[in-house]
Amino acid sequence: MPEPPPHPLGDTWTGQRPPGGNSLTLHTDLLGDLQVPGAAGRGAELEALAARAAIYATRARGDGTRRAYRSAWRGYEAWCRSLGREPLSGDPDLLAMYATKRADDGVAVSTLRVDLAAIRTAHQLASIPLDLRNPRLAMVIEGITRGRGTRPLRQATPAVPEILRQLLSACPLPGTAIGARDRAMLLLGFGAALRRSELVALRLGDVTAVPGRGLRLLVRRSKTDQHGQGQDIAIWANPSDPLFCPLAALDTWLAQRHLATDLDWSVGDSARQDRPLFCAVTKAGQPTGIGLSDKAVVRLIKGAAARAGLDPERYSGHSLRAGLATAAGNAGASLPDLMRQTRHKSTQVALAYLRPADLWRNNVTKRMFTAPDTDES
């Protein structure tokens, strides 16, 4: 089968049939190689359509999801092979057995759901039906969920303002390029409640200073905006405390960033504005213009936490986003205001940040166990 032309967005897909076999190997960027059984009778036209479907399905997921899906699929594939079973069988009973095995291994329900999503996606790419609503499979999943609960076994510690100040103080000096970059990443990541992938995806043209107010950020694409409609976020400046001010931190970093060689002033302004906002820095302190991976955010937060005397294992790339949401909830933010800043689509997820503060607000036990206010008789 001829290989389809490259997709204009840069993703690739190829399909090939092993000599003498009746299976088809799909090379996908999302899950790696998928061995599709019983595909010898599929015509070239069907294979070409599957190729295009694989391309678009792959592009529909972010980098973090792609890594999680590939890891989940490899685990399921290896387990099936150890039993002599075909991973792409469309058999819900086989999937129920795997879910039971994963539950016995002690994985969280959220991890199991990622496994199921990856396995379902592999079947979709191969055009093989798989019914996740099969009664037996659904009963097994419901039993696991009831038995283990859906609360995550471990959550990242939120980098609330008090913690964020400690992380900032543990960064290299602002006068250095890496210190300026790290401080700006921490403050913008917190203020805009950015996911780590969103933080490293920012371009120079995505951040604009608004006189008398602060910063306006454009998040071009996110977990809840896979179609790339874009979302604007505002962050107020803090002129009374320049060391805890997103605008001041960004200005300091941009003074260093503009020294990078990738900002060739002979090219058009639009090309410069599309360069990464945050980039790698050499050991000599020279910004390179090379964009960062989302893992750089994890290393930044854990490294700053360790230098600040905090337990780095308690912090992750989600700590900045969780820190803003938690602090906003503690400050009495309304649900719509919180969701506008964090861009949550699920009210249940956003409410989780408000509930800890709501436990104490207007709690009926206050008048029973605390001294009455002085203005009350």
Results as ranks from 00 to 15, higher is better:
Lys283Val: 01
Ser110Cys: 01
Asp93Asn: 15
Trp79Arg: 07
Gln229Ser: 13
Gly228Val: 02
Ala296Met: 09
Tyr56Asn: 00
Leu173Lys: 11
Thr100Lys: 11
Asp182Trp: 10
Asp232Cys: 00
Leu250Phe: 14
Ser169His: 12
Thr111Asp: 04
Thr28Met: 00
His123Gln: 03
Ala255Gln: 13
Gly205Lys: 15
Arg133Gly: 11
Cys80His: 10
Pro239Gly: 01
Arg221Trp: 09
Pro336His: 05
Ala39Arg: 00
Leu320His: 12
Asp262Val: 11
Leu259Val: 06
Phe369Ser: 13
Ala271Leu: 14
Val210Cys: 09
Tyr69Ser: 11
Arg66Lys: 08
Asp93Tyr: 10
Gly332Lys: 15
Phe190Gly: 05
Gly285Leu: 07
Asp251Pro: 02
Leu243Ala: 15
Arg321Tyr: 08
Ala156Asp: 05
Leu320Met: 12
Val107Arg: 13
Gly175Cys: 10
Val160Asp: 13
Met339Glu: 03
Arg213Met: 15
Pro242Cys: 08
Val297Tyr: 03
Gly212Thr: 06
Ile233Asn: 01
Ala54Trp: 02
Val200Phe: 15
Val36Thr: 01
Gly191Tyr: 06
Leu26Ile: 03
Val297Gly: 05
Pro152Ser: 13
Ile119Ser: 12
Ala50Trp: 07
Leu167Trp: 04
Glu142Lys: 14
Arg17Glu: 07
Met97Glu: 06
Ser197Ile: 01
Ala328Pro: 13
Arg275Gln: 02
Ser222Arg: 08
Asp264Arg: 10
Ser127Phe: 07
Pro2Cys: 01
Arg70Thr: 04
Gly289Tyr: 11
